[in-house]
Write a protein that binds this DNA or RNA. Structure first.
Lengths: 218, 218
DNA sequence: TCAAGGTGTTTTGTATACAAGAATGACAAT
DNA sequence: ATTGTCATTCTTGTATACAAAACACCTTGA
């Protein structure tokens, strides 16, 4: 399945926004981007349109599109929703998970553990993502799965920063154990509660982190 | 705030899909639509792009865009997610709702009741939407509010059909009472459970309804 | 007869040209 | 000096023109 140029450009722009090349409030000039990517304005406009739908930029008619990074308040709100969606997933998964998927969950969690022991932040990040993805899928509700993946993707850059906080990986790991145990026991309520804490703690810690990083960023 | 033509076209197309002018699986021809709306292909393409992001159509690269109505399974999944999102809203709202908003909720519910007594389906539909919107807002989480409104909008045409089922309005009304009582009592868990039932019953009843309507549609 | 390949047509994707609205700056009037 | 208006210029929105990929049909060979 071949993707079109405008899709690749959208991805590239996403990256440029995430890595700070385009800061919050910046206007994204169509002709500038067109020359930068060596294409015409048309695919640029399609890419920007896609980004606006996913919420990364806001499009003001006849004025242009502007980068719109979520502020602290909105971020906390998003983490809250993420926590709830994951809680639902976990609750459903506890009731519906298959044996093979459960084994998979264990295996992935083991890989997480090894990454922690090796202090491999990137590795842990990947395995952690996989861990959550398994739970989404085992909710047995593919629409829910899609929604979870969408939001996870949106919060990705903020989660990533998180893991560098000292001790966060170990704590995260411990929370995983709770989740797995609850799911294995088919205790939906406990699984939901465990993962809710696991995710929402990230939101809470985040504005802590922001406060510490803000001076460095200026 | 003036909207651009492509936005109006997107809305129009949405309507045409909802009212059945374009059925599931139909290909939406760009030039055909362009002549129909008396515009060039460009705004048509932008409109189709928007619809594809919102999930109403699916875009296959180099092949065209096709109407993609959710099947029974996906619909039930979507209602399940809707129920959970509303449950979260209700739980949070029970803790966070303001006095004036609570009064508003009561007033709206009263208007619902009058609509039921008058057998005014359309009126009930509108007030019911308002009722739910108040709860979303009073969750105190505007991101959650947006997500709820988005999904509500997506399920709108299916909900609408529902109300025509005999006795559904009365049952719906009774469920509202439960929700209001629980929120007023600041009992988050009960409010969540009440609204979860209120919404998910729609999903369950829906494929019943589908089975009955299918022959008539053919 | 059927399959395989090629050609022509149709349709999407991209580039460019044109139109219209908004920002900027200068100038005039108070 | 400040404010309001007008014109220039820049940017977005739309139309059209072009390129390339997919589809359909036809021909040709076994």
């Amino acid at each position: 399945m071949e993707r079109k140029r405008s899709d690749r450009i959208a991805d590239a722009l996403e990256g440029l926004i995430f890595d700070g090349t385009f800061a919050d409030g910046d206007r994204l000039d169509e002709v500038q981007l067109a020359t930068r990517f060596s294409v015409s304005r048309t695919p640029i406009r399609e890419a920007l349109h896609r980004l606006s739908q996913s919420g990364l930029v806001v499009q003001i008619p006849r004025r242009g599109v502007f980068v719109r990074q979520p502020g602290p308040v909105e971020l906390i709100e998003m983490f809250e929703v993420m926590a709830e969606l994951e809680a639902v997933s976990a609750r459903l998964a506890a009731a519906r998970i298959s044996e093979t998927a459960l084994a998979d969950l264990h295996a992935t969690n083991e890989r997480c553990k090894h990454a922690v022991e090796a202090q491999d932040t990137d590795g842990y990040y990947q395995e952690n993502e996989q861990f959550h993805a398994i739970i989404y899928r085992q909710s047995g509700n593919s629409f829910l799965e899609q929604e979870c993946l969408r939001l996870q993707r949106r919060l990705q850059p903020f989660r990533r920063v998180q893991l560098r906080v000292r001790g966060r990986m170990n704590q995260s790991m411990a929370e995983h154990e709770d989740v797995v145990a609850a799911i294995e026991a088919a205790d939906g309520a406990r699984a939901a509660e465990a993962i809710r804490r696991h995710v929402s703690v990230q939101g809470e810690k985040f504005h802590h982190l922001m406060a510490n990083l803000k001076p460095a960023a200026e």
